[in-house]
């Protein structure tokens, strides 16, 4: 029981780190970035290459994954995404699906279609016995890192200047522009942060979620669920949604393996029926 709880929480937190960038892009520029998962995949493959080919230690790979995907994010944002801001959701969807396909094929070309494995450092392997349940040390590690990230993000958003500008821009982009906030630069920075977090999530997730070229497609639905159910008005919404999703998915696969894969769809449908505007919508519009 405890094991499931822990696995679920770890999984959920990982999902949050993976998806929160999408929530912010969506909230800030009303941009539907279905290629978000490709950044996560990038972080994952980067880690694989760094560790397996270059022998870089795992703990160093994590910041590297963050920084490099963030850099790629900024470049793509400035060169490509920026052309799509004024366009319809359909255009954004088609465009980012196109990017996903290109990313998948490119990874397939360079790395092959097989599952990628990494060997975690010894101190992250093994189990801890607590209260009669056994808990993977790596899960604890994920929870610690992601938990710290959640706290930092939340504080950053509520306490710093960057955060207050970001919130202003999300709530009322036009007003923010009027106040002289450079929304475009803000967005580039946020996009970088979001992609970086996705990359970090991808790196952390190699051992837990698995990694092959279809990663962005496999997890697209998870990301979408997190942002639609959690909403984009705060980080709390997506966070709770991620936890619910993570716990539900893990518990589902454990208790009703036959039905397990349907768990998230069932949850999605149930939530939509009960709260069509998502779990955390502010009033009705």
């Amino acid at each position: 029981m405890l094991t499931i709880l822990f696995d679920g929480v770890a999984y959920g937190m990982l999902l949050f780190v993976l998806a929160c960038g999408l929530a912010v892009t969506l909230g800030l520029m009303n941009f539907v970035n279905l290629a978000h998962g490709a950044f996560a995949m990038g972080g994952g493959y980067l880690t694989v290459v760094l560790m397996n080919r270059l022998g870089v230690p795992f703990l160093l790979c994590l910041p590297a994954a963050f920084l490099l995907t963030a850099a790629v994010g900024v470049v793509l944002e400035r060169t490509l995404y920026v052309r799509l801001y004024g366009k319809t959701h359909l255009d954004q969807v088609l465009f980012t699906i196109g990017l996903v396909f290109m990313a998948i094929a490119a990874i397939d070309y360079f790395m092959g279609a097989q599952q990628q494995l990494i060997t975690l450092p010894a101190f992250l392997r093994g189990q801890l016995e607590i209260l009669g349940g056994s808990i993977g040390i790596y899960r604890l590690f994920i929870i610690a890192i992601c938990g710290a990230l959640v706290v930092v993000l939340q504080l950053g958003l509520s306490r710093t200047r960057f955060g207050s500008r970001l919130r202003a821009a999300v709530d009322q982009p036009d007003v923010a522009r009027g106040l002289g906030i450079d929304v475009n630069r803000l967005f580039a920075a946020t996009f970088a942060l979001g992609s970086g977090l996705a990359g970090l999530g991808g790196a952390l997730g190699v051992d837990v979620l698995g990694l092959d070229p279809t990663f962005p497609l496999k997890f697209m639905i998870y990301f979408l669920v997190v942002v639609t159910v959690g909403g984009t008005t705060s980080l709390i919404g997506p966070f709770v949604a991620s936890l619910v999703l993570g716990l539900g998915d893990v518990a589902g696969k454990y208790f009703v393996p036959e039905f397990g894969a349907f768990m998230i769809y069932t949850m999605m449908v149930a939530i939509l029926i009960v709260r069509p505007q998502g779990l955390f919508a502010r009033g009705s519009r």
């Binding site: 959701h89 639905i221 979408l224 639609t228 769809y265 939509l272």
Partner: peptide, 14 residues
């Protein structure tokens, strides 16, 4: 129900 985004999710999910 809902917005474009919800539709994306639901159609993909279904």
């Amino acid at each position: 129900r809902g917005s474009d985004l919800t539709r994306l999710m639901v159609t993909l999910g279904v």
